[in-house]
Amino acid sequence: MTVYCLYIFNRYGECLLYRVYKRTYAPRDPGDEQKNMYGMLFAMRNFCQKMSPAQAAESDGKGLTQREVQAHLQYYVAGNYALHYFETPTGLRFIMTTGTQFTGFDVNQCLRRIHARLYVEYVVSNALYTPGEPIQSALFLEKLDAYVKALPIYE
């Protein structure tokens, strides 16, 4: 059971971070993989929303009253890996691929923590980071790696 990769996308599909931990197979074109991942998750998110059994009674489309009842993808499991997905209200997507044995451990909560304690502090509050650019802050990467490697699911 381990953590394979971590991705961070913004709402324009730009990959801000691609961090590999224990991936044995490296794709030939990471850029291509990221595009596919974003596109797939975008479609899946909309699909999850549409299939939700509870919808808001009426959406006036003008953003004045409540938009749809939120029904976000949490994770999916496929054979030998699981993909966990967390989306912030500001459109940031945090994606982590892990092994399949994670029952009892809330990986989404980890992603939330990464957003709240690491991303917001070391990226957003970094005077020398321009929002929208790939993340290169050494401090952030150091703290992130330390956090991920300390997770109980990481071996």
């Binding site: 502090e121 070391y122 509050s125 970094n126 020398l128 802050s137 401090l139 952030f140």
Partner: peptide, 17 residues
């Protein structure tokens, strides 16, 4: 205080905010 979350990228050289 102002450097609390700042990490200087390499192309900024020796900048200290």
């Amino acid at each position: 205080l102002v450097n609390t979350f700042v990490s200087v990228p390499k192309d900024f050289g020796a900048l200290n905010c």
